[in-house]
């Protein structure tokens, strides 16, 4: 009987858990495939009765279509489903986000891997200072960086340039990457280091030939965290980008949200597009992310 009671309890708790975690997202997805007429029904249709992909079509075809007041009224005269002229910026902005995220990932690996190896495996004067330095930079609030970054970037003429985002994202990602990697390198045996050094490897060779191949799980975690942080970042992108040339996905999506004339179903479709890549990555690589978070103890 005790086993049955336990099962009922676990089942109820799991159901509550899933509803809490998934219901808001399910509603977002459901309302992204509804037409304007359906989405404005009271009470709402939890499950769409006439699912449609026209919101997504509008986003992907926005580039070819010339959007004027007439064409968007004509598109859906009964409901006035507004497609904003900025809809065409969404797909390019996702490219911008991708370019920034990939650059930040690559630079992170180049900078963080050697530093983490030195902190974990080499005895040198200033080791604990460098560790505390790295941890301290990790807790600087991004809002405190905004003003100096802005002036700095304006001086170098990088405003409205993707480069400004790459540089500033390094500040918020590198300390965390180093932290995860130090934890992982420390868990690998010192004897490997000794053996490689006796065989005549330099420090750099030891790192590249011995430790990097062994540290793959933590490297994957670093890649994922850095990518997701860059892909999702909003505050700094809001300050440093001004035109579609450099706007990243969160900025364009946010601009839809503040425009009251845009139809809800369109905003929700944009939201779904923004959510799909990071959520897929997270769920597919769940194991690496959880181990990375565990090793890193706290997200940066």
């Amino acid at each position: 009987m005790k086993g049955l009671g336990r099962n009922v309890l676990l089942f109820t708790a799991s159901a509550l858990f899933l509803v809490y975690v998934l219901a808001p997202v399910a509603w977002l997805v459901s309302s992204s495939v509804q037409q304007e007429a359906e989405i404005t029904s009271r009470p709402p249709h939890w499950i769409p009765r006439q699912p449609t992909l026209e919101n997504f079509e509008a986003i992907f075809q926005a580039k070819e279509k010339k959007v004027t007041y007439e064409t968007r009224r004509a598109g859906d005269p009964a409901t006035g489903g507004y497609i904003p002229s900025t809809a065409r910026d969404l797909v390019p902005s996702m490219w911008n986000s991708l370019i920034v995220a990939v650059s930040v990932v690559v630079l992170n690996l180049l900078v963080a891997v050697p530093a983490a190896y030195a902190m974990a495996k080499i005895r040198y004067i200033g080791r604990s200072t460098s560790i505390y330095f790295m941890l301290t930079t990790r807790v600087i609030p991004d809002i405190a960086l905004v003003v100096p970054f802005f002036l700095f970037i304006r001086t170098f003429g990088l405003l409205d340039h993707l480069g400004s985002l790459v540089i500033t994202y390094l500040a918020i990602t590198i300390p965390f990457s180093v932290f995860i990697l130090v934890g992982y390198f420390e868990s690998l045996p010192d004897e490997l280091d000794k053996a490689a050094r006796v065989d005549g490897c330099s420090r750099l060779q030891t790192l590249l030939r011995v430790y990097v191949p062994l540290a793959m799980p933590s490297l994957v975690a670093v890649v994922l965290f850095t990518f997701l942080t860059s892909w999702n970042e909003f505050l700094l992108a809001l300050m440093f980008t001004q035109t579609p040339a450099s706007q990243t996905m969160p900025i364009v999506v946010a601009s839809f949200a503040s425009d009251f004339t845009i139809s809800f179903s369109f905003i929700n479709a944009a939201g779904v597009l923004a959510v799909v890549p990071p959520v897929l990555m997270a769920v597919v690589f769940e194991r690496y992310i959880v181990s990375g978070l565990t090793a890193g103890a706290v997200k940066g």
Binding site: L18, P24, N232, F256, A270, G271, V275, V283
Partner: peptide, 29 residues
């Protein structure tokens, strides 16, 4: 369950804000 737990974690804050704004909407939320 632990895989699904990562869904809210991975969602960009902007999309999260948008989603709740729609949920809280006074007309059709």
């Amino acid at each position: 369950l632990s895989a699904m737990l990562l869904v809210p974690w991975a969602i960009p804050y902007v999309a999260n804000g948008l989603m709740w704004k729609w949920i809280y909407d006074s007309g059709y939320g």
